[in-house]
Design a protein around this nucleic acid. Structure first.
Lengths: 175, 175
DNA sequence: GTCTATATTTTGATAGAC
DNA sequence: GTCTATCAAAATATAGAC
């Protein structure tokens, strides 16, 4: 999506119209304003993310393997991440700087991962500090995405993903 | 600085003029274009950062204590970070999305910290993987800044800073 | 539903008076 | 050096034909 590649504020109706191949004016038949398009895009992403988390949930019963699914998004999506950063994190920071009302929706996107991860850690035998571990993992992912974008370094991403896997093992072994 | 609070592209000449209290037109006596202002801002930040790293260097001879200075920026600057994110990281990602020519300068800002941290790890007895450790620490900081901005959670920042301190100790003990 | 034409505002940038 | 006035382009948004 264009908002991901260019950022929300920088993406104009002309850009969107060129991509979707309808005229600028026609846009207002479907949406009342540009902000409403943003709302729709974020709502869509919320749905897609919920579906993805459900799919990871359906893959198996092992919470540790599920957490590994999360860690490995960094590898699976490394090309777009190196080019444009993390779609969740970059949107949240942009909307925060804009003071945009939809900022909360972007944070809700983070919350989806946070609560999902927390539940996995609870099941993996760390109920007392599940949220702490979830936030730690989220932060690590954000940091890797940020530097991957800055340095375009694929080896760095692979290395950090491996280290997060090691960290996960020691955390669960401590349970 | 306004570019930090609002982002570069979103900050208009009108915004800058209001802040600096000179007229829009007068700006072109000092700079040829908006991009030239960005260049000046980044160059200034590069200088300031170099000065800060030199100051940390002058504080003492212990490389571990110096690295701790870096980790603790997250605490010292927690208010602006919770409000606007990390000034280095958010600028780098914005310029990457814009495909802006000054993108390299923003990464040079990262490099300042990276090479400085690398040198400290080398002196602390980890010459073989000093760059790996420097990048890891940079990534951790970026991640904490990103989530601090999203959740405005001061306790989270303090907790992660403490964990980074623990990590640092185990790394140096392993030397 | 989709288009063209247009209104309005704002942007980065220029010209010229003082 | 700083200002006002202004330009041209691009932005969001609206009106109305088809």
């Amino acid at each position: 999506m264009l908002f991901y590649r260019q950022g929300f504020e920088t993406t104009s109706f002309a850009d969107i119209a060129a991509e979707v191949k309808i005229s600028r004016g026609n846009f207002y038949y479907h949406f009342r304003s540009k902000d409403e398009i943003l709302d729709a895009v974020v709502a869509r992403r919320l749905d897609d993310t919920r579906a993805m988390l459900r799919a990871w949930e359906a893959q198996g019963a092992d919470p540790v393997a599920r957490i590994r699914c999360f860690i490995e998004i960094l590898l699976r999506n490394r090309e777009p991440i190196m080019a444009f950063g993390c779609p969740v994190g970059t949107l949240a920071t942009e909307l925060a700087k804009l003071g945009h009302p939809a900022r909360g929706e972007a944070v809700a996107l983070f919350d989806l991962f946070r609560t999902w991860l927390r539940r996995q850690f609870e099941r993996a035998g760390r109920p007392a500090d599940a949220d702490r571990l979830a936030m730690h993992l989220l932060a690590r992912s954000q940091g890797v995405a940020s530097l991957a974008n800055a340095y375009q370094d694929e080896a760095f991403v692979a290395r950090e993903v491996a280290e997060m896997g090691d960290w996960l093992e020691t955390q669960i072994a401590a349970a």
